[in-house]
Computed example of a mutant assay.
Amino acid sequence: MSDETSPWVPRATCDATCVAAGAAPSGRPIVVALRVAVRATLAVTLLSAVPLLAIPMPGRSHIQRGYCRLMLRALGVRIAVSGGPIRNLRGVLVVSGHVSWVDIFAIGAVMPGSFVAKAEMISWPGLGIAARLMKVIPIERASLRRLPDVVGTVAARLRAGHTVVAFPEGTTWCGLAYGPFRPAMFQAAVDAGRPVQPLRLDYHHRDGAPSTVAAYVGDDNLLASIRRLVTARRTIVAVQVESLQLPGSDRRGLAARCEAAVRGGLQRRAHGSALVA
């Protein structure tokens, strides 16, 4: 059996119906047009400034945080951070659930570092440049043979004192349903002997209702995803900083502990259903 059809490849059951389930009215056409014009202008300005992220300078991490926050604003997304303190440690593996490519900017606004992301992101117009400058570690989800090399690269960066962000679900879900944390990437933390920082990401509307506007699932494409974000009313991404986890020697146990922290006691229902505490 080829890697492309291998059962180990993560697959979400989310599709366009999930996005519709958590959508919200955009508003009057003239208001939407003005909103898009302002956000598009800011986004183009930010993309033209991307090369500045590659220049070594004092306080670079603060600049990256600010850049990511501005990019979120250009997309119509505001960020709210809560939970425990963000410890100033070197060589931390950051993990969270995975809803969208927007997650990279949400996490980058809190804990900037290099990301493990699907290889095709490198070729995306505009955002691909940002991905390369943010030192994205590309992963071919369909290639099981390359996974040990990716884990080895992550472990090496952790040993060197770098922050690395990974999404252990292995693919995106809509945010109303979730996938299990797979243990492979946690092996890097075990091998490097470095701690793991779980983050919980939740997207919602201004009224607090769950939002799937940012979800990137099924046959979605980048342009459609951006259009959905910039035309929608304000989206909030809540980033909850959970307790730091020591690596131990068991990657499966580490994955289970981090998944429990990220889920925050939520119980997963069947695909398409809302989550309840």
Rank of each mutant, 00 (worst) to 15 (best):
M1K: 03
T5H: 04
P10W: 08
R11I: 12
R11D: 04
C14S: 12
A16V: 05
C18S: 06
C18E: 07
C18A: 02
A20M: 04
G27E: 06
I30K: 14
A33W: 09
A33T: 11
R35F: 11
V36W: 03
V36C: 05
A40I: 04
A43E: 04
A43T: 09
L46V: 05
L46D: 03
L52V: 13
L52W: 09
A54D: 15
I55L: 15
P56L: 13
H62N: 07
I63F: 13
R69I: 02
R69L: 08
L72R: 01
A74P: 03
L75F: 14
V77L: 00
V77Q: 00
R78C: 03
A80E: 15
V81M: 02
V81L: 05
P85D: 14
P85W: 09
I86S: 08
I86K: 11
N88L: 07
L89F: 06
V92N: 01
V92D: 01
S96L: 06
G97L: 06
S100I: 02
S100Q: 02
F105T: 12
G108Y: 12
G108F: 13
M111W: 11
S114V: 03
E120T: 05
E120Q: 08
E120Y: 04
G126Y: 12
L127I: 12
G128T: 13
G128Q: 13
L133S: 02
M134Q: 07
I137K: 01
R141D: 10
A142E: 14
V150D: 00
V150M: 00
V154P: 01
V154F: 00
V154W: 00
V154K: 00
V154Y: 00
A155K: 02
L158E: 11
G161P: 13
T163D: 10
V164W: 00
A166E: 12
F167S: 01
P168L: 08
P168G: 07
E169W: 10
G170E: 07
G170N: 07
T171N: 01
A177G: 14
P180L: 09
R182W: 03
M185P: 09
M185N: 07
F186G: 00
Q187C: 01
A188G: 04
A189Y: 10
A192T: 08
R194E: 05
P195E: 06
P195Y: 11
L199P: 15
L199H: 13
D202A: 05
R206A: 15
A214T: 11
N221A: 04
L229V: 05
V230K: 02
T231K: 14
V237L: 10
V237W: 10
Q245D: 01
D250V: 04
D250W: 08
R252A: 11
G253A: 12
R257L: 08
V262M: 13
R263Y: 03
G264E: 10
R268Q: 10
R268I: 10
R268G: 06
R269N: 14
A270N: 09
H271T: 06
H271Q: 08
G272K: 03
G272F: 07
L275Y: 01
V276E: 11
A277T: 09
